[in-house]
Write a protein that binds this DNA or RNA. Structure first.
Ligand SMILES: [Mn+2]
Ligand SMILES: [Mn+2]
Ligand SMILES: [Mn+2]
Ligand SMILES: [Mn+2]
Lengths: 237, 237
DNA sequence: AAATAATGTTAGAGAAGCCTAAATTTATGT
DNA sequence: ACATAAATTTAGGCTTCTCTAACATTATTT
């Protein structure tokens, strides 16, 4: 109701949504999948935005024929809206797979990364990333050596980036000179296990556990110790 | 001049630029590298934006202490501005490497892709992609088999996506039934070379050259023929 | 069946970013 | 030097997206 005549489904061309509106659509789709009905309140909560802003966004989406709702009522996607939401979700999902599965970021970061990028990727880039993810999964499954090598590289990070409670194995001490000598003498050697016990209030120094002893290190020093995080990520696929 | 006291360089915290402003900064840096002076006109032309809009953006950037310029005068980056621009450029550059070098997109698409995404990637994602690019380059250099396999996969595209004049080798016919039989009988077989002679005004049908003969195909039919583009991309690294 | 609470909409405002049209300033040519 | 051209800024307007405060509707209690 609004368009007068033919070609409502065919006229699918001028469908260029802003990143924001795509997120609203995606959000509605996800909520709809988990609940009977979707309300302004749910969207507001889920996106961390006030209800009036959501209300206004819903109006914009309704004008584009992507959402169907009546005043004070439930919110539903039109078929067109659902189709678009589905597209966004697919992008989100395989981008998250890329960041988590291939690039080894934790699920949460991978998701937020995906949700920021999903609106800016061209279809071609999507396709190529999708293929890369699939290829990588196949190769990882057949345990080709290169996927292991890559993982080793990707899992390296400076000790200073761990969070409280994280455990890691030391890979190398990436500083030279006196500091290196000091660190090595303290026991920071390849293969050794460390655990972050606690950050001081200002994140400096940080307290570590190494071979049963507790050691304090300044963040600048910890930055030079390259570790491989361990124990995390219970692979909740 | 504006901030009254200490810590102008140290206070580097609240430096969250919008995607737009990052692009302005990047643009100024690039122009500055290629010319003696940068003017509003140059930026406007380079970004495809009107001069008044650029003027306004310059004001916003000057307020943030990232650009130094006086009315009707040249535009320069402050040290802080240059530092930020440099960061954006680095992101752009290795993202472009990712899309071109790893994902096999053509340079132009890779660049525009990179320039859209560069503003939305977290530092962690940046680092991981950077590592992936490096790893891939090393592996491709030592000609490991998997990089070749991956390339084969990434280079596949439907015949319908080629542009006029493009040449390609057929990899497979990805349809079943009568249409498949017809296409195969016409000569669309694995290993055969094709060239796109011309698209009809409405992009349908498209005229192809196959084994010296000219053949017309509807786009829907061409979509089912998976090819590997060839001859393009003179590797202008 | 009120009264109260929860939810949703309206009104109004502000920041970013874009535009066109109209000054204003600087550069250039004779 | 002065007229003209080019570049820049100002002024004013528009869209998108956000917010708070106030009002309206719907749901829940009592
Ligand atoms: Mn998103
Ligand atoms: Mn998303
Ligand atoms: Mn950019
Ligand atoms: Mn860029």
């Amino acid at each position: 109701m609004k368009h007068s005549s033919v070609q409502e489904t065919v006229e699918f061309i001028g469908t260029e949504l802003s990143a924001t509106l795509e997120d609203y659509l995606e959000c509605v789709a996800m909520l709809a999948a988990g609940q009977r009905v979707v309300r302004v309140k749910d969207i507001a909560k889920s996106l961390g935005i006030t209800m009036p802003s959501v209300s206004a966004a819903i109006v914009r989406l309704r004008e584009k024929g992507l959402i169907d709702s009546e005043k004070y009522g439930y919110i539903e996607l039109t078929p067109q809206g659902a189709a678009l939401a589905e597209r966004v979700c697919r992008k989100h999902s395989f981008l998250a797979d890329f960041f988590h599965g291939v690039l080894r970021m934790d699920r949460k970061s991978a998701n937020s990364e995906a949700c920021r990028l999903e609106h800016h990727l061209s279809p071609e880039a999507c396709r190529q990333i999708y293929r890369l993810v699939e290829f990588h999964r196949d190769q990882a499954q057949s345990e080709t050596p290169w996927t292991g090598e890559l993982r080793e590289i990707l899992d390296e990070k400076p000790l200073s980036e761990l969070k409280e409670g994280d455990r890691a194995v030391i890979r190398r001490v990436a500083v030279e000179g006196a500091l290196r000598k000091r660190l090595v003498e303290m026991g920071f050697r390849k293969g050794e296990k460390v655990r972050v016990v606690r950050y001081a209030p200002l994140r400096n120094p940080l307290e570590l556990e190494l071979k049963g002893y507790h050691i304090s290190l300044r963040v600048e020093e910890a930055r030079g110790i390259i570790v491989r995080q361990v124990g995390d990520e219970p692979e909740e696929e």
